[in-house]
């Protein structure tokens, strides 16, 4: 099997700096991929374009991060092999970004919850001892600010719109809130990254974030997340739910069908 012999997938890394950047990159990649599913199918043509714009921003961020990782560590022959060929358990995105595009309420709430976290996460990179990473964060923060503005506007419109739209937002909130705790957990990889000088500890802003988000939700037709929601975790350590495998079967289709080729 010459093709298989020739083909080398992405290598493992033990460097906490790289591991943390892979997490950032996977988050952006998987959410960008999810949003790209809506391209051509948005509920209104203007909204279709807006979702595609966000998808472009996120996949662009992921691409910069993967490329930067490869300048520091030789994990793969190129960013595509690193991004598109790892087995499921080696993707380290949080569970939230892989949640499905149930409807526009789910999509906008997922975006709002993620982007408002991502803003804090990337602000914590601005003083990174890796100046390239800091520069990527600075560029991305402008895009993130737009994503928040767009998604927040629609969370408010849908939450405080009609009964149907509010019901859909309430459903989205009950589905998605469970995945927010994971994003702000100061797990071993965050702690290692803080120690390595990759990032400051943004998870300390969890309660500020909760306050900010809950204020918007309550403006949005009085939506409130359930107080005692049990938070579900795992994605950051490769323990995914049913969604990611299907995402990967699309995303990796070409790289795995025709290993090692140029496109």
């Amino acid at each position: 099997m010459p093709a298989l012999e020739k083909y080398i997938g992405a290598k493992h890394t033990r460097n906490p700096h790289t591991i943390y950047m892979l997490r950032l990159a996977d988050n952006a990649l998987i959410l960008g991929q999810r949003l790209s599913e809506m391209c051509g199918h948005g509920p209104e043509m203007e909204l279709d374009m807006a979702m595609t714009n966000m998808s472009l921003d996120l996949i662009g961020q992921a691409k910069l991060l993967f490329e930067h990782i490869l300048t520091l560590e030789d994990l793969a022959p190129n960013a595509d092999v690193l991004a598109l060929t790892r087995p499921l358990e080696r993707y380290s995105n949080c569970l939230l970004v892989a949640q499905p595009n149930v409807d526009f309420a789910h999509i906008m709430l997922r975006q709002f919850l993620f982007s408002s976290m991502q803003k804090r996460q990337y602000e914590a990179l601005l003083n990174s001892n890796d100046s390239t990473l800091a520069a990527i964060a600075e560029k991305s923060l402008k895009e993130i600010a737009y994503h928040i503005r767009f998604a927040k506007g629609w969370v408010l419109r849908l939450g405080d719109g009609t009964k149907e739209s509010r019901d859909r937002m309430a459903d989205a909130l009950s589905c998605l809130w469970r995945f927010t705790g994971e994003m702000f957990t100061c797990d071993a990889r965050v702690a290692d990254a803080v120690e390595a000088g990759t990032s400051s500890d943004f998870t300390k802003t969890y309660s500020d974030w909760k306050l900010e988000v809950k204020t918007i939700l309550s403006e949005a037709g009085g939506l409130t997340p359930h107080e005692n929601t049990r938070m579900i975790m795992g994605g950051h350590f490769g323990q995914h739910d049913d969604n990611l495998g299907h995402i990967l079967s699309d995303m990796q289709f070409m790289q795995l069908s025709y290993p090692g080729l140029e496109w």
């Binding site: 203007e46 374009m49 807006a50 506007g153 419109r157």
Partner: peptide, 20 residues
């Protein structure tokens, strides 16, 4: 031109449509 519900969505849609 753009179709929009209010001034905010009009600005955002105009940005997405005409300033790519």
């Amino acid at each position: 031109s753009v179709h929009a519900q209010d001034a905010e969505t009009a600005i955002l849609s105009a940005r997405d449509l005409y300033t790519r």
